[in-house]
Amino acid sequence: MRVAVVGVQGDVAEHVTAVERAAASRGHAVEATAVRNAGVVPDCDAVALPGGESTTISRLLHRRDIAPELVAHVEAGKPLFATCAGLIVAARDARDSRVETLDVLDVAVDRNAFGRQRDSFESRLDVAGLDDPFPAVFIRAPAVADVGPDVEVLATVDGQPVAVREGPVVGLAFHPELTDDFRLHDVALFDPLAGD
């Protein structure tokens, strides 16, 4: 099994580690690869789209021709796990012309919805499908503002959706890769592949 971690910018190494831990917990032999060029995503079973700066990431995904590969990946029904800036990039609409989104997740997203870095926070978060709260780290985090009809909301903060799922795509406004808790990597990347 091969998992791509989109690696053009952001906390890529942290995601690679979390993917490997989640895979090991299931006894999967997984090769997790940081991807900075076109041509790798089509050979991968699942993709993680990390946090970072959404303006920079979206610009590089298009400049480096990785964007159409990610769209094709989701159209083929394969798992995509998008966190923070990744969620913004995956969305239908980032409500900001500086980010050219992939439109693979039917939500509109407000960037920096909780404020600047001084407003960034961590909190225990109840997430649908998990037995115990998740240690969620929000960094200049976005929030989901408008949810399409096929999108399931998995968690909210102050009434705003911060975790969503639509088909093979899971999007989070926070950073599971910054903690040792890989349950959400497991759910997003490996649950859908369990039938294979």
Binding site: Q9, D11, A13, G52, Q117, I139, R140
Partner: peptide, 16 residues
């Protein structure tokens, strides 16, 4: 303002 939140912010700048 925890260490995790502060160091996490810095981590988001990687590759940039």
């Amino acid at each position: 303002g925890t260490d995790l939140v502060k160091r996490g912010f810095a981590r988001m700048q990687q590759g940039g």
